[in-house]
Design a protein around this nucleic acid. Sequence first.
DNA 1: CTAGTCTCTCTAGTAACTAGAGGTTCAAGA
DNA 2: TCTTGAACCTCTAGTTACTAGAGAGACTAG
Lengths: 137, 137
Amino acid sequence: MFSIGELSKRTGVKVPTIRYYEQMGILSASDRTDGNQRRYSRDELERLAFIKHGRDLGLSISSIRDLIRLNAHPDEPCADADRIARAHLGAVKTRIERLKRLETELERIVSACNGGSIADCNVIKSLSDHTLCSNEH
Amino acid sequence: MFSIGELSKRTGVKVPTIRYYEQMGILSASDRTDGNQRRYSRDELERLAFIKHGRDLGLSISSIRDLIRLNAHPDEPCADADRIARAHLGAVKTRIERLKRLETELERIVSACNGGSIADCNVIKSLSDHTLCSNEH
DNA sequence: CTAGTCTCTCTAGTAACTAGAGGTTCAAGA
DNA sequence: TCTTGAACCTCTAGTTACTAGAGAGACTAG
């Protein structure tokens, strides 16, 4: 059995975050000491690693909750799990596209700085004047 | 003078959001009617457009607040404004990089789905097993 | 003058944590 | 066995940028 601090060290998830996951209903300690401290089994350590991996990949807690639920029914087809991952992939692609457009825009704004005074600062002008934008956002 | 609804229509910023910006101290109505309704001048319309543009580009409200403060002192050098934009550009580039790595990872996970049952679903397996990752995140 | 839309303030909820207060428990050394 | 210091407990509140809703008052067109 692991204490919450050990779990934290092994997974890299901070202690208050582990408690937060418990509140969110995706990870709970299977045991408590007489003094009310959480004790985790190896299964729970693995589940936390699963959660962390999902979070690192940007999955929401509710998506992770769904995946955990799916995992509990190993006989059902995996279409749902695939759908969750695919939906997330789509969202990631969209975000990349948007950010790339912003990057272009910011490059333009920053490269226009002439080192003068605010009165003729292109950064602020660029932000004020939407018509200068090379693409819509 | 514009009502808050008119301002909203002209800028595409929702009414409660405009009131929120007032709370945040970046935009306040220069006048009120006898019945306590906000009335905005053309200057304030333009400032809201500036705020919206900055938000669309992903600037935080506090960065926008800084830029507005800078804008109020037109004689000072524009290095600070440039620095804010540059810092943001750096953050955007970093986010793009990270997202691209996640994209690769998710592509791998999704493409591995064999349409079977959860028990041997690669989506969940991939998320459980960190060692399968082709790059660290 | 009235109906219907707009606006007001205030509170609370969202996502995923993080920080802090004030108190208790655990583990290791003397 | 006792003590001490780190780790743990619960609870509340703060973060960001909004969004939703309640209940009441204001404005405007016909």
